[in-house]
Amino acid sequence: MTKLEELTALLVNEINDFNKGVEKLEKISEQINSTKIKMDLTEYKSIIEEHQKQMSIHKNMMEGFENRFNNKIKEAKIYPSWAVVVFVICIVVTVVSISMLILK
């Protein structure tokens, strides 16, 4: 009988410990549910606004660079104008001199 009494006492102690654990968990759960966490976003908002300003400035600079680059590409020529004029004059002079030699 003593073993049965010991087992019963052990079971009663375990059940009491389990009930205490459940009560503690319920208290913790109530504290978690009652606690509201609020975040202060004002600092982050100012940082994000500053970043947006910097990004818009950077975007404007990139668009300006792109416009200047596109204008340079449109104005770009393979040969300078004076070289083309000299080449055409040389061709004309050569054709005229060859035609004069042939006609003489």
Rank of each mutant, 00 (worst) to 15 (best):
M1C: 09
M1H: 10
M1G: 12
T2F: 10
T2G: 11
L4E: 12
L4A: 13
L4S: 12
E5D: 12
E5F: 11
E5P: 03
E6H: 07
E6V: 06
L7A: 05
T8Y: 04
A9T: 08
A9N: 07
L11W: 08
V12K: 06
N13L: 10
E14K: 15
E14S: 12
N16K: 14
N16E: 14
D17T: 13
F18Q: 14
N19T: 12
N19V: 13
N19E: 14
N19R: 14
K20C: 09
K20Q: 13
G21A: 09
V22T: 05
E23N: 08
L25Q: 07
E26Y: 11
E26D: 15
E26P: 06
K27H: 12
K27E: 15
I28L: 08
S29D: 03
E30H: 02
E30M: 03
Q31W: 05
I32R: 02
I32G: 00
I32A: 03
N33W: 07
N33C: 09
N33A: 15
S34G: 06
S34D: 10
K36P: 00
I37K: 02
I37V: 04
I37S: 00
K38L: 04
K38F: 02
K38I: 06
M39F: 14
M39N: 13
D40L: 00
L41Y: 01
E43A: 15
E43P: 06
E43N: 13
E43C: 06
Y44Q: 14
K45A: 09
K45M: 06
S46Q: 13
I47R: 06
I48D: 11
I48M: 11
E49H: 03
E49Y: 01
H51R: 14
H51E: 15
Q52K: 15
K53F: 01
S56I: 13
S56L: 15
I57Q: 10
H58D: 14
K59V: 03
M61D: 14
M61Q: 15
M61I: 13
M62K: 05
G64S: 13
F65L: 15
E66H: 09
N67Y: 04
N67V: 08
N67S: 12
F69V: 06
N70W: 08
K72R: 09
I73G: 01
K74S: 07
E75D: 14
E75I: 00
A76V: 00
A76M: 01
A76S: 02
A76N: 01
K77C: 02
K77A: 06
K77T: 04
I78M: 08
I78F: 09
Y79A: 12
P80C: 05
W82E: 14
W82M: 09
A83K: 04
A83V: 02
V84M: 08
V86M: 11
V86R: 07
V88F: 01
I89N: 00
I89F: 06
I89V: 12
V93W: 01
T94M: 04
T94V: 05
V96C: 04
S97N: 04
S97F: 08
I98E: 03
S99N: 05
S99A: 10
M100W: 08
I102P: 00
I102N: 08
I102Y: 10
K104N: 10
K104Q: 10
